[in-house]
Nucleic acid binder design. Sequence first.
DNA 1: TCCCACGATTGATAATTGTCAAGCCAACAA
DNA 2: TTGTTGGCTTGACAATTATCAATCGTGGGA
Lengths: 232, 232
Amino acid sequence: MPDSSFREIRDLALFSQMADENFSALMRGAYVQNFPAQIELITEGDPSDFLHVVLSGSVDLFSAWNDRETSLATVRPISTFILAATIKDAPYLMSARTLEKSRIALIPSQDVRAVFDIDGNFARAIVTELAQCYRSVIKAQKDLKLRTSLERLANYLLRQQRRAGGAASFDLDFEKRRLASVLGMTAENLSRAFKGLQPYGLEVDGTRITVTNQAEFERFAKPNPLIDDGST
Amino acid sequence: MPDSSFREIRDLALFSQMADENFSALMRGAYVQNFPAQIELITEGDPSDFLHVVLSGSVDLFSAWNDRETSLATVRPISTFILAATIKDAPYLMSARTLEKSRIALIPSQDVRAVFDIDGNFARAIVTELAQCYRSVIKAQKDLKLRTSLERLANYLLRQQRRAGGAASFDLDFEKRRLASVLGMTAENLSRAFKGLQPYGLEVDGTRITVTNQAEFERFAKPNPLIDDGST
DNA sequence: TCCCACGATTGATAATTGTCAAGCCAACAA
DNA sequence: TTGTTGGCTTGACAATTATCAATCGTGGGA
């Protein structure tokens, strides 16, 4: 594994506090690979052989049942995914595919579990990471169960606006069909939802979004830190 | 804290492997309390002062937004809740209320975090617990996004049937209005959903459920271990 | 015993969301 | 340039789900 990737991973909160020798042990069995877009990295139900770290690009976590499919999350650099499956030595609950050309580090799950057993700092870092993940999913759950699709879209846009720096105009960071899936609706419905938000101060031009009336838009969206704040 | 409660808690996977002295330290600040039914134990948004352990009775975890409310989970003995908030020292994402007369142990979050920092076994146990919780929520998410309400109900009934021992007849373990909320639908819809499942081999008499045609019912429900299995 | 409270059910209706088919448009390759 | 592809949009329609109002039934409490 090249030194630069090594450094990037070491700097992750998950790995930064562990003992040098344990980190080295983890990296010995690890390797970095470049994947083109639209490659299925893992398939739900498979045993969790590797902990994955997205170094560049982006990865879609999705799941299918009975001919239906839904996106559950997007993983962006630098972060890991399927940590829970790795720790529990349980099958993946989600499939993963690259959204674009991506560089991914693969760390054998076995090694992760072994180091987890002997390195308290690593174990504690994992706790923090898992607690964070858990709370994110709970928020997503509340978003889904408490809001209509129009409200989910409005709040998604506010979150995206904030991530993009807070300006009135910003770009969507992925294609609308996937956004629809993430928000739990069809692409057609998303299209109509964008229209439905215009009366509340939204303008859409392709992938370019402009909030023309921030106050009115927020009055409609009613964002809530216990659902929409990424940090807590 | 009475010895019996002490023992029950000690036997939980979360606490069973930690050092005696650390467990004692945790228990010193803890106390057990009896609550009547319908008491709000915690409120979302509040700081997480205590890790809760349900010793008897049951607790509903729910959340509200914009005058709507939804049940996210039910906690039954013997298990803990709001572990993630405690660990992260972050506000509760859900409110909790007793569904019936319940005995709850309260362990100061501060103590939990302190012991977590010094006891590797405790930290590892927390990881396992959090990973389990995380995967449960992911399954719930998939259930919500991939299935219609009829399908969610059918699969819920199959899970409940299994929990109850697998016999064709079994009882619902809580009132229908709450079941509706858990399944993400209205009580009226649930009522109709029960009717809608009759053609697939289901009989309902009040709280008594009978699967009259197991094969046909499962053919409709299409249960999937990656959504419906509690263990993995 | 009767009455009340409360959850469950039902019917009527409306809102929301999904499905299907067609058309639009920009990107891209021949 | 032309043709093709794929994503996005639109319209018409159907299915699903929610809302509102009324009723039913059961289990306490007076």
